[in-house]
């Protein structure tokens, strides 16, 4: 069985800056700074009107190849995690194979997951490599959730931003690479309704039929747009993540003290802090990178990983536990040995 290594991770944020001042201007009754003190988010970036997840993925991938770590012709598998694809069909990854000029003798497909997606992507990539089906897998995460947010939905506006990330997973290690170890997964489809864009898929095809629902003066939902039941997602996270983390630790035959750094999906700082405390993780081992990019769904873990590597927070010999959780409801965790 071949081992699989994370070789490098990079990311791209699109050009439309949405800072707290901008949200405050749109919602003068709302103290975004007060909310920001809790979410930990000051800036998010939105894709331009004509820019899709495929476009963000393309730019992120081109920037990745410019680093010269690997040549395009060496990539033998492309997987793309997105819930805002360019088309119903074909899969955005096939279009990217052509746009990026990758070999025609590669596998390429999208998979649909949100905040847990990066960890699942690592799981797929490891499976492809360890079974000998691929040697160099390009894992891309790309979302334009901004398209799903209702203009009056100030809560989700303060949290979500658009982004794409690119990670190279290979069968050959290099200096600074991280070996992908064992995984733990979890799914609870009974909570699907708590985080959902209901209309536009084939069960509720008619986009535009949603009606605005307000509770008092406050926007609550419209089935054409992203709906998130904050309490349910909070509860799912804080009551299930600690068990998933423990399971991942035991599947890797280590004890909690052996983990040098935890990188969770950067949902919002307030919920992360609660999940950290309930998982009994010391604050100095808990990495946060959310202030300047917000919750970019499947890209938050690779963005945080990129910065942790760049700032030497992760060093040779470190064990890093990655944990994603959210829409599905879905969660996954894995351990990376540097």
């Amino acid at each position: 069985m071949h081992s699989a290594y994370i070789i490098d991770t990079t990311y791209f944020l699109p050009g439309i800056l949405v800072d707290n001042e901008k949200i405050n201007a749109e919602h003068p009754e709302w103290s975004v700074d007060k909310i920001s003190a809790k979410t930990g988010i000051e800036k998010r970036y939105y894709a331009a009107e004509n820019q899709t997840s495929g476009d963000l993925a393309y730019i992120a991938a081109e920037q990745f190849f410019e680093k010269g770590i690997i040549e395009k012709k060496e990539i033998d598998f492309l997987i793309l995690c997105t819930q805002s694809p360019d088309y119903f069909l074909p899969t955005t990854a096939c279009i990217l194979q052509d746009r990026l000029g990758l070999s025609k003798r590669i596998g390429a497909f999208d998979f649909n997951l949100g905040c847990s997606g990066f960890v699942y992507g690592l799981g797929i990539a490891k499976g492809l490599i360890s079974s000998g089906q691929a040697k160099n897998v390009l894992l891309i995460t790309a979302e334009t959730y901004s398209r799903f947010i209702h203009p009056d939905d100030k809560k989700n506006k303060t949290i979500f931003g658009d982004a794409a990330s690119v990670t190279l997973i290979s069968s050959q290690s290099v200096t600074g690479a991280g070996k992908i170890l064992n995984f733990s997964y979890g799914t609870d489809g009974s909570g699907a309704k708590h985080l959902m864009v209901k209309n536009g898929g084939l069960r509720h095809i008619e986009k535009g039929s949603g009606e605005d629902v307000y509770v008092g003066d406050e926007f609550y939902s419209n089935d054409d747009y992203l709906f998130m039941d904050g309490k349910e997602i909070f509860d799912f996270t804080v009551f299930n993540v600690p068990g998933l983390v423990n399971d991942c630790i035991s599947k890797n035959d280590i004890s909690p003290e052996d983990v040098d750094l935890y990188i969770f999906h950067q949902a919002n700082q307030f919920m992360l802090e609660r999940a950290r405390r309930m998982s009994k993780i010391p604050v100095e081992k808990f990495y946060i990178y959310i202030k300047d990019s917000g919750n970019t769904v499947s890209s938050t873990i690779p963005i945080a990983l990129h910065h942790a590597m760049e700032n030497n927070v992760i060093r040779k010999g470190n064990k890093v536990l990655l944990c994603g959780f959210g829409v599905g409801l879905s969660m996954g965790a894995t351990l990376i040995a540097y």
Binding site: K34, I35, G230, K231, F234, V238, R274, M278
Partner: peptide
Amino acid sequence: PSWDSLTAISLLAEIKYRYNVDIEE
């Protein structure tokens, strides 16, 4: 001053965790 819907969600989670009691918003 810092009380808001997030504080409420967090408090309810704390209560559920400590006392195994479900309180609705």
